[in-house]
Simulated scan of single mutants.
Amino acid sequence: MLTLTDTASTVVKTIVSQIPNSDTAGVRIQGGDETEFVLGVVPTPEPDDAVVETAGARVFLDATAAQVLDDKILDALIDEEGGVVRFAIEQQAA
């Protein structure tokens, strides 16, 4: 199952906390292939989504993303100057 780094958890919680009713909200990842995903903040997961929760950060994965990201780590990179966040996918250690 996808895991989140501490930085990714913090970023996800910060992003999600800015919307109303953030108790059930999370970042949803929809997959296509190994390199392209669509991320968005949603109020609740879709019925068939896999839910990953780490330190209060909730990430919802559609079926394709759940399969592709099963053995991956989600990290977040923050540009200190502009405050831009980029998410990165890394391989889990065997």
Rank of each mutant, 00 (worst) to 15 (best):
V41Y: 00
A8P: 03
R28M: 02
A8C: 06
N21G: 04
A88F: 00
T24C: 07
S17L: 09
T24I: 02
G40A: 11
V51Q: 14
Q30S: 15
A65S: 02
L77C: 01
D71S: 11
S17A: 14
A76I: 11
G82N: 11
A55Q: 04
G82H: 09
R28F: 05
A25H: 10
E46K: 15
A93H: 04
L4S: 04
D62G: 12
I15V: 12
E90W: 01
K13V: 09
E80D: 15
I78R: 07
I29Y: 07
A93T: 14
E36D: 15
V52Q: 03
T14A: 08
V11W: 13
Q91G: 09
D75M: 02
A94P: 02
E36I: 15
T7Y: 00
E90V: 11
A88M: 00
P47E: 09
T10Y: 08
S9K: 01
T64C: 01
V59I: 13
L39A: 11
T5M: 05
T54S: 10
D79I: 05
G26T: 03
A57I: 02
R58Y: 03
V12C: 07
E81I: 12
P45F: 04
D33E: 15
A65F: 02
A76R: 07
A25G: 13
T14V: 09
G31L: 07
T14S: 13
N21H: 06
P47H: 10
K72N: 11
A94S: 03
L4D: 00
N21C: 05
V52R: 10
P20D: 10
A66P: 06
D6Q: 08
G83Y: 09
D23K: 14
K13P: 01
D49H: 09
I78F: 05
K72Y: 04
Q67A: 15
D6H: 03
